[in-house]
Design a protein around this nucleic acid. Structure first.
Lengths: 188, 188
DNA sequence: TTTTAGTGACTGGCTAGACAGTTATGGAAG
DNA sequence: CTTCCATAACTGTCTAGCCAGTCACTAAAA
């Protein structure tokens, strides 16, 4: 077997891309990303065939990481308010801990470089959350509302809460709770 | 006085930009925008000094148009649920009637080409809505939550509702009401 | 005649990706 | 154990194409 690719370099590229996307938007040049990652620009293309492929991969991994952070250490079958808050808290905590990742995600989300396939895969990563939401929805006033719509509304509330917490980290704890209360009022 | 600029051309440029931004993203070339507007590319720069200026102007005017559409034909001093729904309905109706304008707005919203000044001006355009929200907030369970946070949550809910209505126009009427009910539950 | 809009060819800078040559890796053959 | 080889990663330079904005000129308005 010939040389193996370096996971470190791969990660460095993704991290550099996250950083530069936040600083310069999606127009950030690949050369800048490579420099930030500490590799020559040519190497970037041995890890990702095109810029779009890099963005798709980044989007997917960030979404997966976010989903994993939200549902870490929680049981599948518990549908209580407290349990839901635990997940919400994990979720918000991740966003505050990695503000660049969250910002990069919102940029990538509206980009047309992200393919429907990637979006579908990202959606799949959020599946565990979906099941939980589904259960709460069915028991409350939104039982007649399409599940996708409910999910979208909750996502929107979560995003808004993340933005506000990041904007005003001093009162992050309170904003986290306020956002949750609002979301919970929405579906119960 | 020498030749006056043509309002028609100006509008054509803005309309063309809206259309192309939706189709190609913010990377849409000025030449493409000019072609779509039916003018030579040089003329675009007699109406807008730079591409960024064009985007800022477009953002501002779309936001103003949206705000005006939402608050058309409604009284300032009425704070009832019905009145709020009337505004919500106007708002959603605009989004469904002009889906491209809404989509272009969401693109522009995350762009770093939009200056803080433009954002402030756009925010001012939403002022009448803000007063209404403020009143409802103060009377409900979110009285202790910052007004900006409440506005952000409502905006997020409105956006999500717009997306879903546009996605599934067949049941737009129901989604409009469902979105409103959810938003109303949030703040009362 | 003055002033400014209209026009479209042009340009300078930038960037994604190609490429030709180099180097590390590990297995196979002796 | 040593040599050799096949493979694929590594590298920096290069280039073809694109695009925002310019400019020299013309046309219209007053």
């Amino acid at each position: 077997m010939p040389r193996a690719r370096s996971d470190d370099k791969r990660s460095a590229i993704l991290a550099a891309a996250t950083h530069l996307i936040v600083a310069q938007g999606l127009g950030a040049p690949t050369m800048g990303i490579a420099r930030q990652a500490g590799i020559p620009n040519g190497s970037l293309f041995t890890y990702f065939p095109t810029k779009a492929a890099l963005f798709n991969q980044l989007y997917l991994e960030l979404k997966q990481e976010m989903a994993a952070a939200a549902t870490a250490n929680v049981e599948q079958s518990d549908f209580s308010r407290e349990h839901f808050f635990q997940i919400w808290h994990n979720w918000m905590h991740w966003a505050v801990a990695f503000p660049e990742k969250r910002k990069a995600l919102t940029q990538l989300d509206v980009s047309d470089a992200i393919t429907p396939e990637t979006r579908a895969a990202a959606h799949r990563a959020m599946r565990p959350l979906g099941a939980l939401i589904e259960h709460c929805r069915a028991a409350g006033p939104m039982s007649k509302v399409p599940a996708g719509f409910v999910a979208m509304l909750l996502n929107a509330a979560a995003d808004a809460t993340m933005v506000f917490m990041t904007q005003d980290p001093k009162h992050a704890r309170r904003h986290c709770k306020d956002g949750f209360d609002a979301a919970w009022r929405m579906l119960s």
